[in-house]
Design a binder for these strands. Structure first.
Lengths: 214, 214
DNA sequence: ATAATGTGTTACTAGCGGTAACCCGAGTCT
DNA sequence: AGACTCGGGTTACCGCTAGTAACACATTAT
């Protein structure tokens, strides 16, 4: 009975937690990443201290919120990456999946790319480096894993795979961010251009006529 | 006399402005991007309203501060990009210049990558997209310019160049950020790995032995 | 009945960005 | 000389934020 009661309470707490996260989601989607704890609590129909009891601080809530979306996106990406097809096709499918996601829900995207950032208090330590959004890091590691598993890169394969994983993810991220802001072309064109870049067209391109021997 | 007096005042104001920026620089380097206006004012030996008279708001100060560093970094990069050498060599030199810069002054780097972000007030609008650090955008455009000017990419050359510019900058950024945090290899190795990626080694690599026909 | 435990609230602190109001010294006009 | 504007400076405040302490109600165990 003791244990059953415990689990009963835990279940209730978990349900509660999910409700709170959904409310927070709505507010963040509406107000952007700087949504206040007050606003989130109001949306959930409760008051601040409850939020703090559940998530510790704002960073905790945001981390929990980000984890859900990050996991969802990573799952889609894994599917695209694991499809049975030519390498080029898989790369394009993965790029397209990512771009479709950020296109469909730009506010979620924007939120995910902005780390906690807050923590007004004793944040003296100020960890230099590793400041990037966790999503980028996780995508990079994931991609590195796939590359290292599937490709034969000679010695130092693992390290090369990790560099490439993070590099490719960064390329995707920056190009996607720019594209989302300016919409200079269709998604398909962007995908093709990026894949071309990865396929070495930069190295293969000829110098412009009239240019000196550079 | 009227004009000379005006210029006199303007000169004084400009000197003042430089002093304030240098003080702000010291504080930001010490306290990180969340340095408070109070702290900056104190470091400069004055009080808040003066800062606000000069820079409007925190975003203005941070923009001015960022512009200085951004301009400096962009100049170095232009030098590396314009050096008379083979393309591969220039690419490697540019990557190395960027990585050396973020390695030498990681705090500046971290500051530059975090946009204003604050503006607690009426920031309702919340521009989706284009949220990236201005530094990334400027580097991307700059690189796009160089690529478009120098390379013969067939039709749609300009658009392709812009995609590549932002993509390559993003690759550099993400890989650099990860590298700065984990230091998994030397700078030279990182440079070579990234250049290899851009040179199409991803497409050229063979499948791993034992893997199915993917 | 009474003690204990968990759930919720109100009411507060400290610090932030930003501003209004005042203050004082230097030059200027009468 | 004396009133008078005017630019640079400060103090004291506002509204907001994240985060917390302390109190109130219910439910259950003893």
């Amino acid at each position: 009975m003791d244990t059953t009661q415990r689990t009963e309470q835990q279940r209730a707490a978990d349900r509660r937690r999910r409700e709170l996260l959904e409310a927070a989601d709505r507010v963040v989607l509406r107000d952007g990443p700087q949504a206040s704890m007050n606003a989130i609590a109001a949306e959930a129909g409760i008051t601040k201290p409850i939020l703090y009891r559940h998530f510790g601080d704002k960073g905790g809530l945001y981390a929990a919120l980000a984890k859900r979306h990050t996991d969802a996106l990573l799952n889609s990406l894994r599917d695209a990456l694991d499809a049975p097809a030519e390498r080029r096709e898989r790369v394009e499918a993965t790029l397209d999946t990512y771009l479709a996601a950020i296109e469909a829900r730009p506010q979620v995207y924007r939120f995910l790319m902005h780390p906690a950032e807050g923590s007004t208090g004793t944040d003296q330590g100020f960890d230099v480096g590793k400041h990037s959004a966790p999503l980028l890091r996780r995508m990079g590691e994931e991609l590195a894993q796939v590359i290292g598993d599937r490709l034969d890169l000679g010695p130092n394969s693992q390290q090369l795979a990790r560099v490439w994983g993070h590099g490719i993810v960064g390329m995707m991220h920056a190009a996607g961010d720019w594209w989302l802001g300016e919409r200079p072309c269709s998604r398909a064109e962007l995908v093709k251009s990026l894949a071309d870049l990865l396929w070495g067209r930069l190295a293969a391109a000829g110098d412009k006529v009239g240019g000196p021997g550079f």
